[in-house]
């Protein structure tokens, strides 16, 4: 039997450090689609120009054995330098940015502003009948904010997907595939 088979699926955030070269995102995303893995969110940008490094953050969902497979399959890609399991890292920080458009008039406008203050969301655009809020936080906090403004008049949401980084002074450079192999 595959390891941990039958254990419940869980959501995991993986930070994938890659060589910043043409087609690298296609390699990573292609691996997920070719092997039938899930992508719940995806962010990518160059993070170190001098070292030609980009950071791809993927939130995926699967049973623990599938997550282990995803990590070691990612590590096989030549352009992937290392893979960090942010969820398993006690010092891993995850944040997401959302733009939320709410349409409301009268007392509802006051309510919308009150909720936004609680969540420390910023108003970045307003008309006589609408607001756009910008808020940052962990994904569940973003979800909670959206749930609260929905009855007030939620129109549209745009989210970046999860970004991550490691707390403390060190660089995020531990390859999980190597760690798993020696565990």
């Amino acid at each position: 039997m595959p390891p941990h088979a039958g254990e419940p699926a869980e959501s995991r955030t993986l930070a994938i450090m890659v060589d910043n070269e043409p087609g690298v995102l296609a390699r990573v995303v292609g691996l997920f689609s070719a092997r039938g893995y899930n992508i719940e969110s995806l962010t990518v940008a160059e993070t170190d120009k001098s070292a030609h490094t980009s950071r791809i953050t993927v939130v995926t969902r699967g049973e623990p054995n599938i997550i282990d497979q995803i990590k070691s399959q990612l590590d096989r890609i030549v352009s992937v330098r290392n893979v960090i399991d942010v969820t398993r890292d006690p010092a891993g920080v995850q944040r997401e940015l959302a733009l939320v458009k709410v349409r409301s008039t009268g007392a509802d406008r006051i309510e919308a502003l009150r909720v936004s203050e609680i969540f420390r969301a910023k108003v970045i655009d307003t008309t006589l009948e609408s607001f756009i809020f910008e808020m940052t936080g962990a994904s569940d906090k973003v979800d909670a904010f959206i749930d609260l403004v929905r009855p007030i008049g939620l129109v549209e949401v745009s989210r970046t997907g999860v970004l991550s980084i490691h707390r403390g002074p060190e660089l995020d450079r531990v390859s999980t595939a190597d760690a798993a192999a020696s565990a």
Partner: peptide, 29 residues
């Protein structure tokens, strides 16, 4: 798979970490 060599311990030597525990759980990778 669920009836594959049911009573054995398994040692698996492979150069590719993704081959380990892919289809069958092994005891000594």
């Amino acid at each position: 798979l669920d009836a594959f060599s049911p009573n054995s311990k398994k040692i698996h030597i492979d150069i590719d970490p993704s081959s380990i525990n892919k289809n069958v759980r092994v005891d000594v990778p």
